[in-house]
Design a protein around this nucleic acid. Structure first.
Length: 474
RNA sequence: GGCGGGGUCGCCAAGUGGUAAGGCACGGCUCUGCAAAAGCUGCAUCGUCGGUUCGAUUCCGACCCUCGCCUCCA
């Protein structure tokens, strides 16, 4: 069996194979955040999914070169820079750091490259010049440079690879914004935006005068600079498919830098949106939660991650508080099994050279099927129940427990949940536990129950077993 | 208006032309001083109406509802 992935380019599930079979790495690009504010968990759904896909590709034996850009120049950023009086670098630096911290909170592996748009101005200019030389880019009266979709098509290229376009219908509803009057065609988009008064100190010199790059060209420039003119996987939120990704293809393939027969990107992968109360989570609707919001409500990053990867990436997913609490309960059950397994295994080591466990085989089969995480979780929770049963029956040898643990660790290398961070039991709680044990020994159950309530009030729950009593964090 | 997704148990969510995974919540039993944890166990005929078929939740058609993209957006 091989990994099969939905490719937006062909709107069907396809076997994943590297674009260059002999290449050492798979080129993997994910459109990153615009750093003008804290990201919300809807944004992070895509990034967590990118992390999951990268981890799974690695699990499947590929070496991945993971690039995620940071958009650090854009309208909203410029507005904020003007409002705060900070420099562009200072302002975006803050939110870039916050973004990376949130990414780490959600147990995402750090991408290998995190290029910032402002570090790639020369590459962006080169790209636009090349498009200009090929007659695809043109300079408008306002000093901006636009991409001509008609000229691009005249070169034999296809515009409309990711979406089906009806130019007539589009034209009817397209808004005519102030700066569009200089375009030859309403659908054309900006490659370079001439400096305007509101830009303040945010501008660069270019062959077309002072200005700044258009949004779409940034990703073309950064991805091609780091991964070459053709690479394997390009990922992003579904809202980026059009026009952002479509324009990225046009700009990149418009340069004709690709080898004959090689596309800009082989597999386009789009992650569906996160909804809140059935509506898209977004800044403009105000119906969003940041990672920080949820952390301050006592949730852990791994619980948020679990929820975000509990549903298939191509389905919209409704975020609710109850869902997050459910994720916490499910994860706690999993944690308990792993803890028991660890205890049972002790210092025993799994036998070397063991064949992949049933868990790993079924897990792989599930994720090979277009990253069917729902199926994968079903596999994992079946395994949890089965393992708990064996544990309860005492039929698991330390070696067998170690083997199960090892299998889980490999699976978790993909899911990335990690263990629950250990929390030291405070002295007060320990004292109460001893007090309760004494009361129990004296068969003073009323006192024992009172003490148990006190512990609960402190956030600790008591679990009695044949081997003694334990405290667990609520 | 154009394009593209969805409607499956209280909630979340897989899936298949032959009577529907898993998670959370809920009920019963076992265990327990009582609980908790764990195990066992119970709990849906798949938006509506037609059609194709021996048989459809799964295919086709119509309709209803809903979300997204077409404009900055993960």
């Amino acid at each position: 069996m091989a990994l099969r992935l939905f490719n937006s380019l062909h709107r069907r599930v396809e076997e994943f194979t590297p674009l260059f079979p002999d290449a050492e790495f798979i080129g993997f690009y994910c459109c990153g955040p615009t750093v003008y504010d804290f990201g919300h968990i809807g944004n992070f759904r895509t990034f967590v999914f990118a992390d999951l896909l990268r981890r799974y590709l690695e699990f499947r034996g590929f070496r991945v070169n993971h690039v995620m850009n940071i958009t650090d120049v854009e309208d909203k950023i410029i507005r904020q820079v003007a409002a705060t009086g900070l420099s562009l670098a200072e302002f975006t630096g803050r939110y870039t750091e916050a973004f990376l911290a949130d990414l780490a909170t959600l147990s995402c592996l750090r991408p290998h490259h995190l290029p910032k748009a402002t570090d790639y101005i020369p590459q962006i200019i080169d790209l636009i010049q090349r498009l200009e030389q090929r007659g695809i880019a043109y300079r408008a009266g306002d000093g901006s440079v636009y991409f001509s979709i008609n000229k691009y098509r005249a070169c034999g290229c296809r515009y409309g690879q990711l979406v089906t376009l009806d130019p007539e219908a589009q034209r009817r509803t397209e808004r005519v914004s102030g700066d569009s009057y200089d375009k030859d065609d309403l659908a054309d988009f900006a490659l370079w935006k001439a400096r305007v008064a509101g830009d303040g100190a945010v501008f660069w010199d270019s062959p077309w005068g002072e200005g700044r790059p258009g949004w779409h060209i940034e990703c073309s420039a950064m991805s091609m600079a780091l991964l070459g003119p053709s690479f394997d996987v390009h990922l992003g939120g579904e809202d980026l498919a059009f026009p952002h990704h479509e324009d990225e293809i046009a700009q990149s393939e418009g340069t004709a830098l690709q080898q004959p027969g090689k596309p800009f990107v082989k597999h386009w992968v789009h992650a569906a949106h996160l909804l809140v109360d059935g509506k898209k989570m977004s800044k403009s609707l105000g119906n969003f939660f940041t990672v920080r919001d949820l952390l301050s409500q006592g949730f852990l990053g791994r619980e948020i991650r679990f929820l975000l990867i509990s549903a298939h990436y191509r389905e919209t997913f409704n975020f609710t508080r109850e869902g997050l609490e459910g994720a916490r309960s499910a994860l706690a059950r999993l944690d308990a099994t792993i803890a028991q397994l660890t205890e049972r295994a002790g210092s025993a080591a799994a036998e070397t050279g063991t064949v992949p466990s049933g868990l790993e085989t079924a897990f792989t089969e599930a994720l090979d099927d277009d990253l069917n995480v729902s199926k994968a979780w079903a596999v994992i929770f079946d395994w949890v129940r089965e393992t708990n049963g064996a544990l309860a029956a005492g039929s698991l040898s330390p070696t067998a427990a170690a083997a199960r643990l090892q299998a889980w660790l490999r699976v978790d290398g993909v899911m990335g949940l990690g263990g629950r961070p250990a929390e030291e039991v405070p002295a007060v709680a320990m004292a109460l536990l001893e007090k309760r044990n004494a009361a129990k020994a004296a068969r003073d159950f009323a006192l024992a129950d009172t003490v148990r309530s006190e512990l609960k009030a402190l956030g600790w729950t008591v679990e009695d077993s044949k081997t003694g009593s334990k405290l667990k964090r609520l």
